Simulated assay, not measured.
Amino acid sequence: MKGVLLVNLGSPDSTSTKDVRKYLDEFLMDERVIDMAYWKRFLLVKGIILNTRPKKSGAAYKKIWWDEGSPLIVLSERFTEKFKQKVKIPVALGMRYGSMSIQKGINELHEQGVTEIFMVPLYPHYAMSSYETVVVKAEEVIAKDFPSIKLETFPVFYNDKEYINTMVESIQRHLEGIDYEHILFSYHGIPERHIRISDTTKSHCQLDGSCCNKPSEAHKTCYRHQCFETTKEIVKQLNLEGKTYSNSFQSRLLKDPWLKPYTDFELEAFPEKGKKKIAVITPAFVTDCLETLEEIAMEGKEQFLEAGGEKYFHVPCLNDDDKWVDTVVKWTKNWENNKN
């Protein structure tokens, strides 16, 4: 029997410092998130970060938390319920981190007799700390506890026609009637070294502003290239002129060089450049979460307005948008048909 496993990032069970610490412990101890030798990662995470960050992160989560729980979890569940109504095979939702685990998702499908799983990591772009860690974790769980199950994973969809069309329609709908001069495409940041580590050619990625535009096998796993391609495809359909949009990267951690330009620096600089009315889009996320609702919609707005900006609008993620649901349903049915 076939089944579908939808996978998203995850969230703490609550905004309490205890629950946030537990979540951050699992997240930051992932070697694909902080790629240090285990002993160094252990000392950094458990000796330093977990002694200070959980309280601060808990306060941030409280600012966005809904009565029903974590927005990311609630929205993912809403998406899953809509999705279930449109397919005839079992569907489960799992998270890479937190109590709603990939293990639980696979077990839920296994108990329904599923022997072939179509896994859809809800990440448009390839990165060690997102798409790759989901695939590795799912493969480990299946090898250890469900060896009879076959797993097939949907590839990253940063330039998929259906995904781009869905994004464009959502952006157009949300920006209708909004007064703006500039669109900022803010992507989740990753360390520059992750780009080089993921370079299968070990030579193409130079982060020099040109390598992303040169054809290469490396682009299959290059987060930076894929982000820029998503922007290009969306911009093409929106008919935006070159000076009316730009890219940036958010959510830095530690002091290592991360992908540039940095979102917060850009937001503070825009007003001086005469860009006082902006809209911000976060295409690296299909579901609104801490990084979009607090970091961009709240903190980003405050930074921009304090720097002299006049109007600021955050475009919501796809969340449980009906067309987005239909897009993933189409991918699933294509997989089913290819298997028959």
Rank of each mutant, 00 (worst) to 15 (best):
S99C: 00
R96Y: 02
L151I: 03
Q237W: 11
V280G: 09
T17L: 04
K202T: 10
L254Q: 06
A269Q: 14
E272K: 13
T244S: 15
E233M: 10
T263E: 05
L151E: 02
A307E: 12
V235G: 04
V4W: 07
G242V: 08
I102Y: 05
K255G: 06
Y187P: 03
E291H: 04
D179G: 02
V286L: 09
T153C: 10
G69P: 09
E229R: 13
E217Y: 10
F154H: 15
L318H: 08
D160F: 05
R78Y: 01
T52A: 09
S70I: 11
K333A: 00
S210P: 00
A60Q: 08
L6Y: 11
V280A: 09
N319L: 13
G177D: 03
T200L: 13
I164R: 09
V7F: 09
Q85M: 12
V74K: 14
L151S: 01
N338K: 15
D208Q: 09
V280T: 11
E152S: 12
V74C: 10
Y61G: 08
L175P: 01
I195W: 03
E169T: 07
W258M: 06
N239Q: 14
T166W: 08
A284N: 06
I296Q: 03
R21G: 00
M1Q: 07
D208Y: 12
F265P: 00
Q103S: 10
T282Q: 05
E140P: 00
E140R: 13
D321S: 13
V168T: 07
G113A: 01
S14F: 13
L9Q: 04
V134L: 07
L44S: 01
G274V: 10
S148E: 13
F185Q: 09
K311C: 00
H182Y: 15
S76E: 09
S248I: 06
V325L: 09
C227E: 06
K323E: 14
Y223M: 04
V20M: 11
P215A: 07
W324A: 08
E229S: 08
I190M: 11
A297H: 12
Q237K: 15
C317D: 10
K137P: 01
Y223T: 10
A269R: 15
K220A: 11
E310P: 00
W331P: 04
M167G: 00
G177M: 02
P257G: 12
I149N: 01
N338T: 05
E336H: 00
H125F: 07
E302L: 07
K275R: 14
K276D: 12
Q237F: 11
I178S: 02
Q206F: 00
E181Q: 15
P283T: 03
C222F: 12
L50P: 01
C289Y: 03
L50F: 01
H225S: 10
R193E: 13
C212Q: 15
I195N: 06
P261E: 07
L24D: 06
T80C: 06
D35A: 11
D179A: 05
D67A: 12
L122K: 10
C212T: 13
V168K: 05
F185H: 09
I73L: 15
G113E: 01
E132S: 07
K220S: 10
C227K: 11
S101K: 02
K276I: 11
K62N: 14
T230H: 02
Y23E: 06
W324I: 07
G94N: 08
